[in-house]
Nucleic acid binder design. Structure first.
Lengths: 225, 225
DNA sequence: ACTCATAAAGTCATCAGATGACTTTATGAG
DNA sequence: CTCATAAAGTCATCTGATGACTTTATGAGT
């Protein structure tokens, strides 16, 4: 057990400045004190101030103009990009993914074309079954199939969010080497495609839930252990 | 008209390093060359390397450990901020929102407590019915109720995504002042709370869908007109 | 007075060197 | 072979200096 930040003046500086920005200390377009002044105000060196400012620039809060100064670009995090990452657990991420999987399957069932179904069958065959080898790689291939279902729904918002989750989940699995996540059942996957082919959204819905259940249960075991 | 970046070595360094990370030059968990080496490789000073590294740390790609080194945390765009916004249509956003609404209602039904149900009833009463006045304001209050359902699910990932959508949707509505979006039905909302109280996820699921249907239909009419 | 080229001042961009703090590895006594 | 200790490696931070660019002040010429 240790303090959240044992040493990190620059991050403290980032939060101090961000806090002042959100607190409307300076209006949009207004100029911040120069680096030397900020350095004095925060009691850190100019280099540290520069690191902090550059982070805030990369996050869209500030803008620097060489020879002129540093200016506020946004005083709210309304347009703040979604990150979550470390705050949401893997289980939460899977649950959210399930929400998208289910709805996308329903939409795809309604909007499907024969070509769509054929493409999904092709991807499922390519994915194959788990052969006991590289698990992370298999899960990645599995994600590709599900991503195709989402893509077939034609909903751009869901596609983007799914990409967001896929990458995050793949990384988490790769990093924590989850040994005991069960093989996503091949038959359950085929059922999803079949259900989509029938055009019945409720069947598609049920098929997706049937597949995700064991995975969530496995995650719960991992969390408890 | 001028060059995209007249002077900015640090940003160039960020992109150079990010590119190598995405190109899998180093695996997740692997250590990067030290600051002096990166400085030499990129032909920039150590200070500039530090600014670049700190940006990548703030974006979740890297992690620094004092006394040890700088390590790769993600080799994909996992931490890439999700933005979408202008590329997804309002209808797509509502569909994605529905996916979250449904799943959250299911989870809340299973995980609910009497206090949760009481709080939801209170919020619903506060929300009231549409009186023909400020529509955008009413929709905002309506969103607050649904947000409470999501919050009650306890799923942080969904909460964050929902916030993301709420802001986006509220912005879109405010900007396009949708005149013909129907009043979300009060009875349908009450049904959602009732279903959650029974603890039956399927009932909760159906109740949410019943409420969203007319809204989506109205959006389709707007798009066609 | 007014215009406008030029100088001066202000500020960010970048570099170089040094010190401290922390982690990892090598060493050697027991 | 174990384990305390020393040594080496690396990030964290500070200080000082120079270059590049922008803004403001200056003043000659009209």
């Amino acid at each position: 057990m240790r303090a959240i930040s044992r040493t990190n003046l620059a991050d403290d500086a980032v939060e101090a400045i961000r806090s002042d920005i959100l607190g409307k200390r300076w209006a949009v377009g207004e100029k911040l004190p120069n680096e030397a002044a900020l350095s004095a105000m925060l009691s850190v060196s100019r280099g540290t101030v520069r690191e902090a400012v550059r982070v805030l620039v990369s996050q869209g809060y500030l803008e620097t103009r060489q020879g002129s100064g540093t200016y506020v670009r946004a005083t709210s995090d309304a347009g703040r990009p979604l990150t979550m990452a470390r705050r949401a657990s893997l289980r939460d991420q899977f649950e959210a993914r399930l929400a998208l999987d289910v709805e996308a399957a329903r939409l795809t069932a309604v909007r499907k074309s024969p070509e769509t179904v054929a493409e999904l069958r092709r991807l499922l065959a390519e994915r194959g079954s788990y052969d006991g080898g590289d698990q992370a790689g298999f899960i990645e291939r599995d994600l590709a199939f599900h991503k195709a279902v989402i893509a077939a729904s034609g909903n751009r918002a869901m596609i983007e969010i799914y990409d967001f989750f896929s990458a995050s989940i793949a990384d988490t699995i790769a990093a924590t080497l989850g040994k005991d996540i069960p093989e996503p059942d091949m038959q359950a996957h085929a059922d999803i495609v079949d259900a989509i082919e029938t055009g019945d959204p409720d069947r598609a819905d049920a098929a997706v839930r049937r597949f995700m259940g064991p995975v969530l249960a496995a995650l719960d075991r991992m969390i408890l252990s």
